[in-house]
Write a protein that binds this DNA or RNA. Sequence first.
DNA 1: CGTCGCTTTGATCTAAATCAAGTTGAGTGG
DNA 2: CCACTCAACTTGATTTAGATCAAAGCGACG
Lengths: 229, 229
Amino acid sequence: MLTQSTSLSVSINRPTPGAFVPSKPFSGLAGLAGLIATEFTYRKDGEIYGEDEPAEYIYQIVRGAVRTYKLLSDGRRQIGAFHLPGDVFGLESGTKHRLAAEAVIDTTVRLVKRRSLEQAAGTDVQVAHKLWTMTTDDLKHAEEHMLLLGRKSAMERVATFLLEMDRRLAVAGMMALPMCRRDIGDYLGLTLETVSRALSQLNDEGVLGFSGARQIVLRNRQRLRNMDI
Amino acid sequence: MLTQSTSLSVSINRPTPGAFVPSKPFSGLAGLAGLIATEFTYRKDGEIYGEDEPAEYIYQIVRGAVRTYKLLSDGRRQIGAFHLPGDVFGLESGTKHRLAAEAVIDTTVRLVKRRSLEQAAGTDVQVAHKLWTMTTDDLKHAEEHMLLLGRKSAMERVATFLLEMDRRLAVAGMMALPMCRRDIGDYLGLTLETVSRALSQLNDEGVLGFSGARQIVLRNRQRLRNMDI
DNA sequence: CGTCGCTTTGATCTAAATCAAGTTGAGTGG
DNA sequence: CCACTCAACTTGATTTAGATCAAAGCGACG
């Protein structure tokens, strides 16, 4: 189960570096720089960092899921991305986090100090290049998401979401969504009711099947792709 | 006038490298790498590159304005950004452009070969770092724009747009918008009519003044900032 | 000085939001 | 193990912001 902590990890809602057990080097940057990663577990809905907080660490998800988001002053929220096992988040070239991050479910991350990574990038062009391509990947996602938010209908947004999650977390044709309908709505620029109605309609049409609200199997990916375009 | 070409530039809608006169090094990367930039002019609405085209060059605007955008199959368009004099666009770590680019008005750019810049980044960590921070700046803009597209009202979007353009192109308190209402709508995820109505309302309320549809002076920035949040 | 593209403004429509109950089901404690 | 509880989800009714459809203005340019 995703919500279980390892025996090595401590589960409080803020890292207190020094108290943790060193772990494997950051994969993806592994071998490029001999960086020490610390493992840490956040509880469901725990804050990992806030918007405009100093960016002290860079994170990679071991298990669980994270949402990064921005808020308007009245509480309206836009989730920029969901991060899943293997994903890196919190990478900044400036000194502050531009989005806040929270654990969607109990989540274990590896963290490395931003300064040590930047230092490695300052002497090793391979590390520098890797940082750049990771940022480019995030930018690509954001550009596609702007198209979704600015120009797609509710059904098209949900279809895009399902295909994205299917690609990223389906095992044996089935996906277990870690996030609630409100999270999905705040990611897609919709209300939770609109998300629910779209999913129900897709279920009625046989495009997908449910086994529990968050266990979804896609039965007709091509139909979804046609909606997606 | 922005629509005038320099005597050194050729004004056709595609660069045919080899026929051009070398120019100054790319500013922002100036001195970091001795890269040769070529100057080129595109006519209003000229295509600079298409989506998914090979990314052969990186561009910096000398004068004019550029829109970068994505299209859906039925022609719906989302403009990701407007690029103004001094701005760099078309920077990719992959081999393809992820958005298309067009000149909003007659536009002169300096271009450098992507490969030579990548080569410079491969030996010079300062160049590599500059590429990274330029990409991070784009990502920051995209993240803020996702919040706008997903969660702001029409009036809030227009207020944000006006403050952005005021910051980027106001001279002596006055801004000369290079783009039409449709472009603004496709940037803000609205129709051109909704943009027009919002601007008229702000004019009626005395928040801004027009001298021609695209010559705008902001009379109450604070009111706009309060809408913006 | 006529034309054509851009902009404004008005009337109407509609997709999605909002408001409002129910329903379900996972987790908790008896 | 079962019943209870509460958050999450679904579904229905109604409202509304913005889209769409339509028709004038206007202004820059040939």
